[in-house]
Computed example of a mutant assay.
Amino acid sequence: MKINTEIQQLTKEFKSFRALNCIDLTINQGEFLAVLGPSGCGKTTFLRLLAGFDSPTSGKIIMGDKEIASNKRILPPEKRNIGMVFQSFALWPHMNVREHIRFPLLHHRFLSKKLKESTDERINEVLKIVDLTHLQKRVPGELSGGQRQRVALARAIAAEPSLLLMDEPLSNLDAELRVEMRREIQNLHRLTGATIVYVTHDQGEALAMADRIVVMRNGEIEQADTPAEIYCKPKTEFVATFVGKANVLSGKWQGNVFMMNINGTLVTWQNSEVSDEMKKKNLFPVRPEQLEISLTGQGIPAEIINVQYQGKEIHYTVRVEQQHWNIHESQLFKIGDKVKINLKEEANIAVSLETYEYI
């Protein structure tokens, strides 16, 4: 049976503060859903409502054909078929790795008959999935941060929950280990087919791992889409600037042609990938890597005002009139260089305002 989770008009208020405002969302079985947003946007509140740690002010959560939360009735966490991975790992210091995995197999109320009859086989299978077979007798104090995180993941998936909730599970790890653990979680999702809701403020994690990303702001969903759509076709200014740090330029759209007035000259750029929502607002979200810098030739006059060397890529801040644009380039320029800016691989024509009807 296919078990989707339906969120209908979900609202949560704390006294006079509304943390979630009329959230509508479907979480599909087997989907890796990342909930992305800045601190205070409501993503952790959303996860707590899914887990059963809080009750909604209004709205419903339905898992499969069962209502698990509303303002009249809430099913406690232990009566929901969920697994949870916490930011702090939440491991028991006296239990070894194998005992951590055994625990949900002994106590999870939704355990299938098959798993009840083959507990040791399931433990061995999970140990293999998270690559901890050789460490199964160790306690958490004898493990590294990445290994402890694997134990937390193993414990969460052991009972095959319908929904696996992850609350910023990599935030306590160093940068190199976070990248490694991303791969681990992707592999776990592929091997288990689990439905995962992954809360994070890190856009890189969301883009790298998720099938779909929900971008939240001020308790509301700004956009729910695939990583490619979120990155390439943001529907709002917030999504454009929060995911990928786009330069949001103001001008005027005519079809797929964008026009803006720079220093008394009309610049026109052609692009067919911008969302209709942004076009209606006469905005063009330009990613830093979509722009290129040159010292000579035609283009928008600019000045380099900041340089951050990142190895393969160099991050520039340039001044265009009174605006600051972010550009990622491979060529080396210096602070103070007077440069020209163009849009990569797109029609890019600058003509006099007097020869083009702008308004």
Rank of each mutant, 00 (worst) to 15 (best):
H189Y: 04
R182E: 03
L164S: 12
A159W: 04
N261H: 12
L153N: 02
F238E: 03
D167H: 13
H201Y: 03
G251F: 14
A228Q: 14
M259I: 06
V214E: 01
G219R: 01
D167K: 04
C232L: 11
V179R: 00
N172Q: 08
Q147G: 10
A206G: 13
L170P: 01
F258E: 00
H189E: 10
E176R: 13
R217T: 05
Q203V: 00
A159V: 08
D174Q: 09
A194Y: 05
M216S: 12
K252G: 03
Q223R: 08
D202C: 04
T195S: 13
A152W: 11
K233I: 06
N247V: 14
A152M: 08
R155D: 09
M259N: 04
T226M: 08
E237K: 10
L163V: 13
Q186E: 09
E180N: 11
H189F: 04
Q203G: 00
G219L: 10
V151W: 10
C232D: 14
H201T: 03
A158F: 05
R148I: 03
R155Q: 11
A246T: 09
H189K: 04
D225Y: 07
V151P: 08
Y198T: 05
D225E: 14
G255K: 06
G251Y: 12
L207E: 00
R150N: 11
I185Q: 01
R182G: 01
K233A: 14
I221P: 10
T200Y: 04
A194S: 15
E168D: 15
